[in-house]
Amino acid sequence: MLCIDSSGILCLSIIKIMEQQSNKNRIAGFYKDVVKFRKSELINDYVREDYIQHSPMGKDGREGLFEMVEFLKTLPIPAEDAKSPIVNIIGEGDYVVVHLDLLFMGKRTVLMELFRLQDGMAAEHWDITDEQTDNEPIINVDGAVNTTGLSNRTFITHLYSQFKKVAIHHMITDGDYVAVHAELKADKPIALFDIFRIEDKQITAHDFVKQTVPDKMMHNNGMF
Rank of each mutant, 00 (worst) to 15 (best):
K164T: 12
G222E: 08
D94V: 04
T204Y: 09
P85F: 00
F71R: 02
F193E: 13
V97E: 08
L102N: 02
V34Y: 00
I156P: 14
L150T: 03
T74D: 00
P189H: 11
R62S: 04
K73Y: 02
F115Y: 15
D101W: 00
C11Q: 12
A179D: 10
K16Y: 09
E49Y: 08
T147H: 12
R48I: 00
V87H: 03
E49S: 13
L117A: 08
F71I: 01
S84T: 08
V96D: 07
L102C: 06
F196V: 04
V141E: 10
D60A: 04
D142Y: 03
K201C: 08
N146H: 11
Q162C: 05
A182V: 03
A28R: 08
H181V: 07
E67P: 11
L42K: 15
I90K: 13
P189T: 07
L72N: 07
K216H: 11
D142F: 06
K201H: 13
S55H: 04
D94M: 10
I15V: 11
L65P: 10
T147P: 09
I156W: 05
N146T: 04
A123G: 06
V213N: 01
E113R: 05
D187R: 14
I14K: 13
I156C: 12
D194Q: 14
H206T: 08
A144V: 03
E80W: 10
T157K: 14
K210D: 07
L65Y: 04
I198Y: 10
E124L: 06
A167M: 05
D176G: 05
R153N: 07
L75F: 00
K24D: 05
G93K: 05
P189N: 14
K107L: 01
I43P: 13
I9T: 07
E49A: 08
I43H: 02
G149L: 13
E183V: 04
I90Q: 12
F115V: 02
A179V: 06
M105C: 01
G8S: 09
I90W: 09
G120T: 05
G61C: 02
T154G: 02
A28Y: 01
Q20P: 06
I138Y: 09
P214Y: 00
M218Y: 08
P214V: 00
N152L: 04
E19T: 05
K107Y: 00
A28F: 01
I52E: 15
H219N: 15
V87P: 03
I172D: 03
M57H: 04
K185E: 13
E67D: 15
G120M: 14
I52M: 11
H181C: 15
F196W: 11
